[in-house]
Design a binder for these strands. Structure first.
Lengths: 189, 189
DNA sequence: ATATTATATATCAATCTGATACATATGTAA
DNA sequence: TTACATATGTATCAGATTGATATATAATAT
């Protein structure tokens, strides 16, 4: 592990923008980072503790009524750590698509099954594309307000271009697979 | 964990085509599955032992000279297990792109750094695209020989379409970022 | 002859996921 | 108003995975 775990930097990156609780960090990751990076509570909360021990973040405990709330703020040392990581070369870009796995091994079952997987994939991508296009539009309106917005926009356009390519592929893949399914007299819907 | 770990099915899927050693399984995954699925020895060897205990695969030990060689063959029960999994819906398709992470948080450093990450990404994709196009061509020549070849071809065309979209995006992203970098008087190469 | 690469199996600390547990707050429908 | 569902919030853990490392032999190149 050349430059320690990525989770450290994702959290530092989010906190560099504004102070947040672990719960809010998770929400951010699910919404804006969601399509190219994921994390679970099981990695967020322990990492926040570690970052606090390293003094890369500080903790502000609030208690309004009964519910406790732990808000974390990045320190100057934390920002330095983030910047050092940004300078390091990218170690790994990884795809892990179960849909492609089921397509790859699809000759071990009916083509109608594989077709269903592709159709579900297509629908999921179509829905996510709507979300990304909405994000693109709202980011374009606030582009001049903050430097970071261009960075956010570029990740969103990456998603849009990619998802559009997926959808084009889906049509082609469905055609070729359903043609074979018909030829073999297998059931398709 | 609704339908147990994926590694089981990846190995069963590969063994459904032909008997192999753990080392060969790893090589296959690095070459043909590599762009949408990865695995390390640390998950392959233990999984092979588990599959053997479950009687989904059988072991043939060979010893030519000093080096031992453990070849695994799928059983009818193993094939049934694979087919059952192929029928189950896809649980998760996941992207994990560190390049996008560094782009997203790029406003915390010089744009020239982010530009370098995108340029390296572009180069990597360009090289992988050459490999995929070669695979596409050789699969098209043997398409009629085996049913599975269409399945393999479709995963390859997925990669090609996706990577082409990435490259288009790279040009656009570099333009927008370098324009800003110039505007701010920052160093770019 | 020597060094490097390829074949081959195996383990392990560090890490991460998915599930679960717990507790409070807020909205909403009966 | 009572009950139910959803949202906010922290935390842990078994099981799965990675990346590194160790070990050994075979083949190929220098």
């Amino acid at each position: 592990m050349a430059n320690s775990k990525k989770m450290d930097f994702v959290i530092l990156g989010l906190l560099a923008h504004e102070s947040m609780t672990g719960y809010e960090i998770k929400k951010r990751m699910d919404t804006i980072l969601g399509f190219f990076w994921n994390a679970s509570y099981g990695s967020i909360y322990p990492t926040l503790n570690e970052l606090q021990n390293k003094q890369y973040v500080t903790l502000q405990e609030e208690k309004d009524g009964g519910r406790e709330k732990k808000s974390y703020t990045i320190t100057p040392e934390g920002k330095e750590c983030l910047e050092r990581w940004l300078h390091l070369p990218v170690e790994k870009d990884e795809l892990r698509y179960e849909t492609l796995l089921k397509l790859f091994f699809g000759s071990n079952t009916d083509d109608s099954i594989t077709l269903q997987h592709i159709e579900k994939f297509e629908e999921k991508i179509r829905n996510q594309l709507v979300v990304l296009i909405a994000m693109e539009s709202s980011l374009q309106h606030v582009l001049s307000e903050e430097d970071a917005h261009l960075n956010y926009l570029l990740t969103v356009t990456f998603g849009i271009k990619t998802y559009e390519a997926y959808l084009t592929w889906c049509i082609q893949a469905k055609n070729l697979l359903s043609k074979r399914a018909q030829g073999n007299g297998k059931v398709i819907n």
